[in-house]
Design a protein around this nucleic acid. Structure first.
Length: 579
RNA sequence: GCUGAUGUAGCACAGUCGGUAGUGCAAUUGAUUCGUAAUCAAUAGGUCGUGGGUUCAAGUCCCACCAUCAGCUCCA
C-alpha cells in the first residue's frame, strides 16, 4: 500500500502543510508525485528564494515529529466550494470535477482537495529521505497566459541510501552533459556574442560532416534530390507561405536595401515549394523528394536555449516530398524505414507520437480522416497498439504528424525526427501536377527530418556515448605516440599510411614524455592509441592501447590498417579488440 | 518571455569584516630523448561578464543590462 508514489504524494502534502504554517496567506494549486520525488505549486503573492527552501525543509521535519493520520473524507461540491472559498485554484479544480462527490484529505491541520492515495500515518514518512531541490516559476494549468505560481521541487526516496544514490546519479549524468563535454573534446563552443549559434571546431565539424555524408549516401539511394536555396528571402515569400502571420516574432529580420524587408529563413518549405513550381510537374515526377541541409535561423525566447539541443542557428536534415494523396501510406512507411536505420546504427531508443487534427485545422475533413487512418495503421503495424503515443488534436493546422522523441543524459525529452503531412501549403502556393488524364491535381507535401537537426542530434550523441563515439564517426580515430624522437620517422610513416586509408589520425611529435601523450589521447577518448618504438619500427608493427584500457602488441601494420578500414565501413558500435 | 540562481586567467577553483587578486592543470621558454593515466625548472597570462552608483577605497555592497544554469511556456 505504501508504494513510493503515495510516500511522495504524502510528502508533498507535508510540504504544503509547512508552507501553510510559514505563509498563512498561501493559495494552494496542485502537488503531485513525479518520477524522482514530488512538487507543489503555490501562489504566495511573492517569489521564493533558495534560502527559503531550507526553512521550509526544516519545518517539514518538525511537522513529521507529530503523529497524525492521513484521513480521507468526502464532501459534495457545494460543501467543498464553501470549505475552499478562500482557495481560488481549488475552486477551479472543484468546478472541473464531474462527480458531485469530492475527495478530501486531512493531515494534521492541513486539509487538501485530493484523490489520494496517501500513507496512513505521518510516522510512515519518518524513515523516508527527501531534499527540496529547487524553486521555479510554473504557470497555473501550464498556460502562459495564466498567473505564474511558485513551484518547489523535491527529490524523495524510501530511505537515505536511495536518495544519496539518486543525487549521485544526477552528478554522474552531468558529466555526460554535451555542453561540458563538447567544448572539452574540442567539438564546438558557443560564444556570448552569438547565443544559440554554435561555432563548429575542426573535430566537431568532422563529426558533423561524417553524419552528413552518411545521410547523403542513404538518401540518394532512396530517390532523394538535394537542393540548396537562399538564406535570405523577401518578406513577400513568407507572406504567401503564411509564416509571416504565424511566425514573424521568431524570425530574424533584415532591413534590405531600397526599403525591401528580408528575413533569414526559419524553415525550408517555401523555398522547396518554389523549386517544385519552377517546372510544370506530371504525376510521373511524383514522389518528388527535394532534400536540403541549409542553415536555418529561429529567434527563440531567451530562457529556452540549451547548448546544442535548443539553438537559434541550426541545420535540419530536411526534405519535402511532393506526393499524390494515394502515396501517403507508402511514403510515410519508407521514411520510417530510414529513421529506423539511422537510429539503430547509433543504438538510440525512441518514442513515437502520432498527433491528429486540431480544432483550428484547415483543409478538407475527408482528406484528414483518410490520412489519419493510414498513419494510425502504420503506427500500429510498426510499433504495436500500446507502443506509440496518440496525441489527439495536437497536429499542426496544416496536417497530422508523427514525431520521434528521445531523452538526454538527464532524462529530458527532445523531439528529433518528425514526419508532417501538409495539405495547406500546396494550396497557398497553388501547386499542381498533371495526372494520367491530363487534369490538374494538388499534391500533398510531406515535411520530414530524420536526425531532426545535426546540432540536436550531435548533442544527443555526445551524451549517449559520453563522448566515446563509435569508431566510424570519431573525429580522431587513431592517435600516434612515438616512444622517443628516434621513432618519429616511423611514426610519421604510420600516420601517412593511415591517412592514405582515410582514417582520421593525429600524431604527437611534441618534446615531452610519451606517458603524457598517451594520457592526452585517453582524455580525448580516441579509440586506438598506436605506440611505436624501436621494436615496432624494426618489425613494421604497431602496439595499440584500445579505448577502455586493453593493450595489444605486435600487430602487423598493414593488417592493422586493413582491419580499421573494415571497422569503419561496418559502422559498428563496438571497437574491435582482437587483431 | 516568466520564476529562482550563477558569472574571478583557456579549464577547475580560492579570495575572511570592503584595503587594490592567488593555487593546480593547460600555455611559452629551457633542460630532459623517455615503452603506456600526466618529467623537472623558470616565465608569461586577469579592467574580477558589461555599464552605472555608494565609499577615502569595490572581486566583495546597490541598480541596470548581457550571458549561462534549473524549471515553466514554446520548439527540430
Amino acid at each position: 500500500m505504501n508504494d513510493i508514489n503515495s510516500i511522495r504524494h504524502s510528502l508533498s502534502h507535508i510540504m504544503a502543510y509547512a508552507v501553510m504554517k510559514l505563509y498563512p496567506d498561501v493559495k494552494f494549486a496542485i502537488g503531485p508525485s513525479i518520477d524522482t520525488g514530488f512538487y507543489y505549486d503555490f501562489d504566495l503573492g511573492h517569489s521564493l528564494t533558495t534560502e527559503d527552501l531550507k526553512v521550509i525543509e526544516d519545518k517539514m521535519h518538525e511537522i513529521l515529529k507529530e503523529d497524525f493520520d492521513f484521513e480521507q473524507s468526502y464532501m459534495n461540491k457545494i460543501e467543498a466550494m464553501q470549505f475552499f472559498k478562500n482557495q481560488p485554484y481549488k475552486l477551479e479544480l472543484i468546478a472541473g470535477i464531474d462527480d458531485d462527490k469530492v475527495s478530501i484529505y486531512k493531515s494534521g491541520e492541513f486539509i487538501d482537495l485530493c484523490a489520494g492515495p496517501h500513507v496512513e500515518n505521518s510516522k510512515m514518512l519518518r524513515s523516508c529521505a527527501f531534499k527540496l531541490t529547487s524553486v521555479a516559476g510554473a504557470y497555473w494549468k501550464g498556460d502562459a497566459t495564466k498567473p505564474m505560481l511558485q513551484r518547489i521541487y523535491a527529490a524523495a526516496f524510501k530511505d537515505k541510501a536511495e536518495l544519496k544514490q539518486y543525487l549521485f546519479q544526477v552528478e554522474e549524468a552531468k558529466k555526460r552533459d554535451h555542453r561540458k563535454l563538447g567544448p572539452e573534446l574540442d567539438l564546438f563552443f558557443i560564444h556570448d556574442t552569438a547565443p544559440g549559434m554554435p561555432y563548429w571546431l575542426p573535430k566537431g565539424l568532422k563529426l558533423f560532416n561524417t553524419l552528413l555524408e552518411f545521410w547523403r549516401e542513404e538518401h540518394e539511394k532512396r530517390g532523394y534530390h538535394e537542393i540548396s536555396c537562399p538564406q535570405l528571402n523577401s518578406r513577400e515569400l513568407w507572406e504567401i507561405s503564411g509564416h509571416w502571420a504565424h511566425y514573424k516574432d521568431d524570425m530574424f529580420c533584415v532591413e534590405g536595401n531600397e526599403n525591401k524587408p528580408f528575413a533569414l529563413k526559419p524553415m525550408n518549405c517555401p523555398n522547396a515549394v518554389l523549386v517544385y513550381k519552377h517546372k510544370i510537374r506530371s504525376y510521373r515526377d511524383l514522389p518528388l523528394r527535394l532534400s536540403d541541409c541549409d542553415k536555418l535561423h529561429r529567434h527563440e525566447a531567451s530562457g529556452t536555449l540549451h547548448g546544442l539541443l535548443r539553438v537559434q542557428s541550426f541545420t535540419q536534415d530536411d526534405s519535402h516530398n511532393f506526393i499524390r494523396q494515394d502515396q501517403i501510406s507508402d511514403e510515410v512507411n519508407a521514411i520510417l524505414d530510414i529513421a529506423d536505420l539511422f537510429y539503430h546504427i547509433f543504438g538510440l531508443t525512441y518514442k513515437a507520437v502520432l498527433s491528429t487534427r486540431p480544432d483550428d485545422y484547415m483543409g478538407e475533413i475527408a482528406l484528414w480522416d483518410k490520412a489519419e487512418a493510414s498513419l494510425k495503421e502504420i503506427m500500429i503495424n510498426r510499433f504495436g497498439k500500446e507502443n506509440f503515443i496518440l496525441n489527439e488534436g495536437d497536429g499542426a493546422f496544416y496536417g497530422p504528424k508523427i514525431d520521434i522523441i528521445m531523452k538526454d543524459a538527464l532524462n529530458r525529452e527532445w523531439q528529433m525526427g518528425t514526419i508532417q503531412l501538409d495539405f495547406q501549403l500546396p494550396l497557398n502556393f497553388n501547386l499542381s501536377f498533371a495526372n494520367e488524364k491530363g487534369e490538374l491535381e494538388t499534391p500533398v507535401i510531406v515535411h520530414r527530418v530524420i536526425y531532426g537537426s545535426f546540432e540536436r542530434f550531435i548533442g544527443l550523441l555526445i551524451e549517449h556515448f559520453a563522448g566515446a563515439f563509435p569508431f566510424w564517426i570519431c573525429p580522431v580515430q587513431v592517435g600516434i605516440v612515438p616512444v622517443s624522437e628516434n621513432n618519429f620517422e616511423y611514426a610519421k610513416k604510420v600516420e601517412q599510411l593511415l591517412k592514405d586509408a582515410k582514417i582520421n589520425t593525429e600524431i604527437k611529435l611534441g618534446d615531452y614524455g610519451m606517458g603524457k601523450k598517451v594520457n592526452e589521447f585517453r582524455v580525448a577518448k580516441v579509440p586506438y592509441v598506436v605506440i611505436v618504438g624501436d621494436k615496432e619500427s624494426e618489425e613494421n608493427t604497431v602496439s595499440i592501447k584500445i579505448r577502455g584500457g586493453k593493450q595489444v602488441n605486435d600487430i602487423k601494420l598493414d593488417n592493422f590498417i586493413k582491419e580499421l578500414v573494415k571497422l569503419k565501413q561496418s559502422k559498428a558500435l563496438e571497437l574491435k579488440e582482437d587483431f
